[in-house]
């Protein structure tokens, strides 16, 4: 089996839904931070059967809101001295600003591009958010 050395200081993004790892890698801009990063795909998992993982050396600022939107099931493990120092589950964010565009063509934000709509979580089960400007519901 393919092995990647354990990291001493850094972050492990675990329990990424299989197939989503590349998107998480790209959305977080991990290739642009000059860090050593390993993207593992289709790793056997007792919890998910298959999962993706990302190992990052160093501790970059991660946008946990974006991460929660991409996959609320992800676990963020902060590694110090080769051991897990802290685990964070981003979950679905209650409020999201600037990451989602409103899909309602009648929404003011469709023409006034300088405005970032804020979205409020209204239905966690359906991953449904409401636009603060027009009230449109958007599923992410």
């Amino acid at each position: 089996m393919l092995r990647v050395d354990p990291i001493q200081e850094g972050i492990v993004l675990d329990h990424i839904r299989a197939g989503l790892g590349m998107r998480v890698f790209q959305e977080l801009g991990l290739g642009e931070k000059g860090l050593t990063v390993a993207l593992l795909m289709n790793v056997p998992s007792t919890k998910l059967s298959r999962k993706d993982m990302i190992k990052i050396t160093g501790v970059p600022d991660l946008d946990l809101t974006k991460l929660g939107l991409l996959d609320p099931g992800i676990t963020v493990n902060y590694i110090q001295g080769g051991a897990v120092a802290r685990k964070v589950k981003p979950g679905l964010p209650e409020r999201v600003a600037g990451l989602i565009r409103c899909r309602n063509p009648r929404c003011i934000t469709s023409t006034e591009g300088y405005v970032a709509p804020e979205f409020t979580l209204v239905n966690p089960a359906a991953k449904e958010y409401r636009c603060s400007f027009c009230g449109e519901r958007v599923r992410v």
Partner: peptide
Amino acid sequence: RHPKEGAAQL
């Protein structure tokens, strides 16, 4: 008055 929804809030 504006044709777009949310215009007044903006």
